[in-house]
Structure formats: C-alpha cells, structure tokens
C-alpha cells in the first residue's frame, strides 16, 4: 500500500454563518493526481486552504503528511507548493520574475537575512524546470497569463515540495496555452514524484490526466478513481456538472463554463 499524504476525516468547515463543506472524508496517496471539481462556491478553495493550513476545519480532522497543517514547522510547510489563479495577484507590482520565485524561499531564509547564492540558484533551477529561465530579469507584469502561471508554478516548486496544490491555475490562461500548461504539470509530476491536487473547472481537460476526482458541492461529496466518479451520471448531476461530458468524450466539452469569480 502506498503512503497517505492527505487525509480528511469527517471535516466540516465554513466562514462563520453555516458550513461551506460538510462531513467530508477522503484520502490522497503519494503520487496521486487529484482533480477537485464542483460548481462555483461549492467549497473547492476551502478544501485546498485547509490542506495548505490557512483555514481551520470547524469539525473533524485534516492531516497532511500525517501532521495537522496548522502545526507545520517551517520545514514541513515548505514541502507544500501552492498556486492560485494568476488573476488574483496584481502583477503590476514592481517585481522581477526571479524575485517572485525567490519569495518561495523567504520564510525559510527568515527575517533579517538576504537570499544566498544557493537560494538564487534554486530560483533559477525552478524557472528552468518551467521553461521560464530566459525571463528571469523580466517584470512579472510584462508576461502573458500562461507565462505568469509558469512563474508561479516555479515559485511553488522552488523548495522541491512533495505536494503541489493548485487552485484553478488556468483561469487567465488562454485556451491555446492551457494544454501546454497541463503538459508541464504532468512532466513535473513525473520527474519530481509530486503529488498534485488541483481545483479546476475544466473537467474535460484533465479527465484523462488525473487519476482521482473529488467533487464538492456543500453537503455533497464524491471521491474516487476518475472513471468511477465521472461515469456516474447522478454523481455529476449532484455535483453540479454538465452531464454531457460523461457521454461524449473527454476533450471536447467544456464543463460548467465561464470564468470563475470569487
């Protein structure tokens, strides 16, 4: 049996008035590639934030690498990379690509110290792995959506993490580059033995890449092998997915379309 890297046991969580997700239980094993799907406001980001240790479950137990994410040491924390949709970040901010990636090292370096040559080297390596090394001196705002997201992936993997959390990473990336972006993720996963959990709207795009799917819509939660979850028409309906995807191929249909806005 492989190692469990994420475990949710009867987790309920919300933001004050009522729970957003209720009584969720599932586990992710090392090397899994998990797609988190569900309608807007269904609780995808909330689940990911609990894994990242920035949102407390109200009830139940979250364990990441066997540890309560809120009690991570800095070293354990750096085994997690976290990438959100690029549009949440104001990239007119005056910062260069390489410095964005270096930020991933800041907490480990600690206050009062400057990044060392080794830190710089790690940032350059991460940029190389995402094919962005030639842009290290560019202003982040000068890049396209897809390029920015590659830079944020580089920041996410700069500490050679075990787990990469992605929250709708292709919002703001044009359709043409989305495919290349998913290919990059697969390549990184293969080469660096990453476990990936990714919230996405784009079920059709990833259904042939992820091996597990978690579908959250408030009180409803399905989790299992990709085929299993997606082939169940009822499951998809409850989770707010367009049922068409199940019957007609994977790549063709965009599910639950439209831009995400929260």
């Amino acid at each position: 049996m492989s190692e469990e890297i994420i475990t949710f046991k009867n987790v309920s969580a919300g933001y004050g008035a009522g729970d957003v997700v209720e009584n969720i239980s599932f586990s992710v094993e090392k090397g899994d590639y998990v797609g988190v799907i569900g309608p807007n406001g269904g609780g995808k980001s909330t689940v990911l934030k609990m894994i990242a240790g920035v949102h407390k479950p109200r009830l139940g137990e979250v364990r990441v690498m066997g540890i309560d994410p809120e009690k991570f040491t800095q070293k354990e924390r750096s085994l997690i990379g976290y990438v959100r949709q690029e549009t949440f970040i104001d990239t007119s901010f005056p910062v260069k690509v390489k410095d964005v990636v270096l930020m991933g090292r800041y907490a480990l370096i600690g206050p009062g110290r400057r990044p060392s040559d080794q830190d710089e080297q790690m940032a350059m390596d991460a940029l190389k792995r995402t094919g962005m090394e030639n842009f290290s001196g560019s202003h982040i705002g000068a890049l396209s959506g897809g390029q920015k997201q590659r830079v944020f992936i580089a920041r996410g993997i700069v500490n050679n993490p075990e787990l990469l959390i992605l929250d709708e990473p292709t919002t703001g990336v044009d359709a043409k580059n989305q495919h290349a972006f998913y290919e990059l993720l697969l390549e990184l996963k293969r080469n660096y033995h990453l476990t990936i959990i990714m919230a996405t709207h784009d079920v059709s795009m990833v259904s042939d890449q992820v091996n597990k799917v978690t579908c959250v819509n408030h009180g409803v939660h399905m989790h299992g092998e990709t085929e299993e979850v997606l082939k169940d028409e009822k499951t998809c309906e409850v989770c707010g997915l367009d049922t068409e995807v199940i019957f007609h191929g994977k790549r063709k249909t965009r599910v639950d379309g439209g831009p995400h806005n929260d």
């Binding site: 990242a52 920035v54 991570f72 976290y82 959100r84 970040i89 930020m103």
Partner: peptide, 13 residues
C-alpha cells in the same frame, strides 16, 4: 511578499 501576495505569503509560512 505580504504586499505582493498575502495568501501566498501566508501559505509559505
């Protein structure tokens, strides 16, 4: 980091 990306900073520790 806080000024650029508060949530990213928080997740990173």
């Amino acid at each position: 980091y806080f000024a650029f990306d508060e949530e990213g900073a928080r997740v990173s520790g």
